[in-house]
C-alpha cells in the first residue's frame, strides 16, 4: 500500500473551476480542523481542468478531506457542493476515472512519457 491517496474531486454546482475548489477545500479544512489539521492533511493539487481536480493526500487523511468537503464555500461564504468521484492509490489508477478531456491531458504518473 502506498503512502499517498489520489482523489478525483468533482465540483457539482458548476460555479468554481477545479483550482478554486482546491483553495476552498483548504479554507474548509482550516475552518473545521485548524491549521494543524491542514498541516496533517497536507493536500496537494496535482491537476485541475474544468470542474475536475486531482489532489494528493496522505493515506490516513482521506476522511479529513471528505469531512471538509461538506463545508466547502466560495469566497462569499455560499455553500459549494463537491464530491470525491474516485480514490486511488496510484495516479495511473485514477486517470481512468477522469472523464474524456481529462484523459490524455490529465495528470501524468511518474515515469510516463511527456
Amino acid at each position: 500500500m502506498g503512502r499517498w491517496r489520489y482523489l478525483l474531486l468533482e465540483e457539482l454546482s458548476g460555479e468554481l473551476p477545479g483550482g478554486e475548489v482546491f483553495n476552498a477545500l483548504k479554507r474548509s479544512i482550516v475552518d473545521l480542523f485548524g491549521h494543524m489539521g491542514l498541516m496533517e492533511a497536507s493536500p496537494r493539487l496535482l491537476y485541475a481542468r474544468g470542474r475536475y481536480s486531482v489532489i494528493r493526500c496522505p493515506r490516513g487523511e482521506v476522511d479529513r478531506i471528505r469531512a471538509s468537503l461538506i463545508f466547502l464555500s466560495d469566497g462569499l461564504g455560499r455553500p459549494i457542493a463537491a464530491r470525491i468521484k474516485s480514490v486511488s492509490g496510484t495516479l495511473r489508477g485514477l486517470r481512468a476515472a477522469i472523464p474524456s478531456g481529462g484523459g490524455a491531458g490529465g495528470p501524468r504518473a511518474r515515469g510516463e512519457a511527456g
Binding site: 482521506v62 476522511d63 479529513r64 471528505r66 469531512a67 468537503l69 461538506i70 457542493a81 464530491r83 470525491i84
Partner: peptide
C-alpha cells in the same frame, strides 16, 4: 452532500 462525506464527518 455525498454519503461517504457525511459518514466521514
Amino acid at each position: 452532500r455525498a454519503p461517504r462525506e457525511i459518514a466521514s464527518l
